[in-house]
Design a protein around this nucleic acid. Structure first.
Lengths: 158, 158
DNA sequence: GGTAGTATCTCGCCCAGCGAGATACTTGTC
DNA sequence: GACAAGTATCTCGCTGGGCGAGATACTACC
């Protein structure tokens, strides 16, 4: 399966970026005595916070692909480390909303901030058409990865 | 930390792509009764094969950040599943080269092929300047992620 | 107030990965 | 050839993340 043209270079580049980004957040995890899953959880929680949504234990576990037992253990770890707080939902007392601690947010920004800043800086060097190309390509790949379940002969039409 | 402009949209998009690509290969793992690490190992092995290099157990473990015990267990799993073969290096009989089985390669292509094909298809829709922008941006992010260890105030000089 | 439904937690287990040390082989010296 | 030092892989015992099953606490509907 030899190189099929200049396109494959970019495909491999994208994969390399994925690997490197994973390694980057892995270093954050290791440096703070956390498991990769814990970092993913914090990211999900911060996303929700940024969107102004409350995140329950169940939704967090769902987003990470964990079952309820694993989710409980995860929130236990994060709480023990002081990164999150469990807060009983007063409207529905079965629910537990998980809130990120300010210090965890600051910790995250101190690690990922420079990388994000660099990416923004890079992007400022492009004009509108170039930005559109980057945006469209990434959106296209995301859709392809979401949609393509990798199951041959299984198509979602209907 | 509100949106800092159109650049942040792309940064979040890139992160979403990373997440989605991880989930995609996770589905491949689960569907074939493999661990995510096993998939990463196959990718490393196929990369080496494509580059025409032999991959020893030690180098494989190193690439994945595993110690020797974990590497042995990993190769055991892959071998038991028939995805790789252990081959004693005849020049240096301490070494074990790990060879990917043809069927594992075919299995991998049947899952990742469509996604790669779609990405190539997307890329064919751009002109030279747009392609250069995508390539440069990805290369820049990769470098930033490699270089930025996330350790504030820790620089290599003196 | 009772029953069904839902969100989270507890318990027991499996297995990926680690640290330490054993084993098998190569290289260099005599 | 025998011996010592160095290197690649494997074995052993253990830790801990995640799962399945079931318990628990609460809400919703009648």
């Amino acid at each position: 399966m030899p190189d099929q043209g200049p396109e494959m270079e970019i495909v491999h580049l994208l994969r390399a970026v994925t690997v490197e980004l994973g390694a980057h957040s892995g270093r954050f995890a290791q440096r703070n005595g956390m498991h990769p899953t814990d970092v993913r959880a914090l990211v999900v929680l911060m996303d929700a916070a940024r969107a102004g949504e409350a995140m329950t234990a169940g939704r967090l576990g769902g987003a990470l692909g964990l079952n309820s037992a694993g989710t409980t253990a995860l929130v236990d770890r994060l709480e023990r480390a002081g990164h999150v707080r469990r807060v009983r939902d007063e409207r529905d007392r079965r629910r537990v909303t998980v809130e990120v601690d300010e210090r965890a947010v600051a910790l995250g920004w101190s690690h990922f901030g420079p990388l994000i800043g660099r990416a923004v800086e890079l992007l400022r060097g492009y004009d509108e058409r170039e930005l559109a190309a980057i945006r469209d390509f990434l959106a296209g790949v995301r859709e392809a990865a979401e949609g393509d379940t990798g199951e041959p002969g299984h198509n979602g039409s209907g």
